[in-house]
Computed example of a mutant assay.
Amino acid sequence: MQNRIHNPNLPAVRRLEAVGFRAWPAASVQYDGSWQVRLTAGHPSKRLNCVVPLDPSDYRDIDIRTEKAARRFEAYGRALLFRETPLAPPQLIDFLRRHGWERFEEVIVMTADLSTIEMPDTMHHLPSHDVGRFVDASLKVDAADPALKPALAEIVSSIKPPSGLFSIEEPQTGPVAAALCVQDNDLAGIMSLAVAADRQRQGLGVEILSSALRWARTRGARTAWLQVTAANEPALALYARLGFGEVYRYAYWRRNKPE
């Protein structure tokens, strides 16, 4: 069952989508009308490999444009994904539903006012400028494939707005938490935040998030934003305690595999 707030603020959605594209840049970005086609050969991130419709009134030739996008994705060795935000035309969503596409992974986009947010008194960590070290830490904390290092390093290096690369490392175990904060004028996006599986629920998430938000606030950011899957209840509880509130939701659509 779809669960989203009623009448989302579309100008706010457009702005957060725009800063999100800059904060997590795809290697290839093309447009078909107002549909943004994002592809990145070296990294499987769904945000980097999807079609994002950006105008509710742009729903002409849906079937032709969908097949055109599918061929482009196939050339990259990827299955076509659509990302549904409040900017997606309802006619497109009806088309996908009628043709048996599957909606999955609902994500909540949240914001917080950095002038009023109350951050706990935790240890303060300064950001690093060492992309390689941050990528190593991020992959280890996420238990991700080390082979993704070149692609992830390229993505992080290609972020144009100022970025804060945060990690918490311990002498015996190495990295135990990592976070990436991107400051785009008055907006600060938490693009990734992870804590090692065996160190969760020990305050490390709050510690590294607070460090990132303090860094962004001292640089003039007034609003923080982040994305979290709707099923991640511990993270949602943490963000709510810090004062984050929902602005809108998005989800992905994929073709159902034939039986």
Score class of each variant (00 low, 15 high):
191 M>S: 12
205 G>E: 07
178 A>D: 07
198 D>P: 01
163 S>D: 01
187 L>M: 15
189 G>F: 08
161 P>E: 05
154 E>C: 04
153 A>W: 03
197 A>C: 08
190 I>C: 11
168 I>L: 12
159 I>H: 03
204 L>G: 00
204 L>D: 00
192 S>D: 13
203 G>I: 01
162 P>Q: 11
160 K>F: 04
186 D>K: 07
196 A>S: 15
195 V>N: 10
175 P>V: 01
185 N>S: 14
188 A>R: 07
155 I>S: 01
199 R>W: 12
189 G>Y: 09
161 P>L: 04
159 I>Y: 04
194 A>F: 07
170 E>C: 07
185 N>K: 15
200 Q>R: 15
209 L>T: 10
178 A>Y: 12
193 L>P: 05
154 E>K: 14
204 L>T: 00
162 P>E: 14
195 V>W: 05
208 I>M: 08
173 T>S: 12
189 G>P: 02
209 L>Y: 06
187 L>P: 02
181 C>R: 03
209 L>K: 04
168 I>W: 05
171 P>C: 00
207 E>I: 01
199 R>T: 01
164 G>W: 10
184 D>S: 14
193 L>T: 09
178 A>R: 09
160 K>L: 12
194 A>I: 10
163 S>Q: 10
195 V>I: 06
199 R>H: 13
192 S>R: 13
209 L>S: 09
174 G>L: 11
199 R>V: 01
162 P>G: 03
181 C>P: 04
154 E>P: 00
192 S>E: 14
202 Q>E: 08
192 S>G: 11
199 R>C: 04
184 D>L: 12
158 S>C: 04
172 Q>M: 08
188 A>Q: 11
164 G>E: 10
155 I>D: 00
191 M>F: 11
175 P>Y: 08
191 M>T: 11
209 L>W: 04
200 Q>I: 01
168 I>D: 09
164 G>Q: 11
176 V>H: 05
190 I>L: 15
190 I>S: 08
170 E>V: 08
180 L>P: 05
166 F>R: 06
165 L>P: 02
182 V>A: 06
169 E>R: 09
205 G>I: 01
196 A>N: 08
180 L>S: 04
206 V>S: 13
198 D>A: 13
206 V>I: 05
173 T>Q: 12
200 Q>V: 00
204 L>Y: 12
167 S>A: 15
186 D>G: 03
208 I>R: 10
191 M>H: 10
154 E>W: 02
164 G>V: 05
160 K>P: 00
174 G>Y: 15
198 D>V: 05
187 L>W: 15
168 I>N: 09
157 S>Y: 02
194 A>W: 03
162 P>Y: 05
188 A>H: 08
174 G>E: 13
160 K>W: 08
184 D>A: 14
156 V>K: 10
173 T>E: 13
182 V>R: 06
178 A>H: 11
199 R>E: 04
160 K>E: 13
175 P>S: 03
188 A>S: 13
195 V>C: 07
205 G>Q: 01
162 P>M: 09
153 A>V: 02
178 A>S: 15
157 S>D: 07
176 V>P: 01
158 S>P: 03
200 Q>Y: 05
164 G>N: 09
193 L>R: 07
169 E>A: 13
197 A>D: 15
155 I>N: 01
172 Q>I: 09
191 M>N: 13
179 A>K: 09
158 S>A: 15
207 E>N: 01
203 G>W: 01
183 Q>Y: 00
200 Q>N: 02
156 V>D: 05
168 I>H: 08
153 A>D: 04
163 S>N: 02
176 V>G: 03
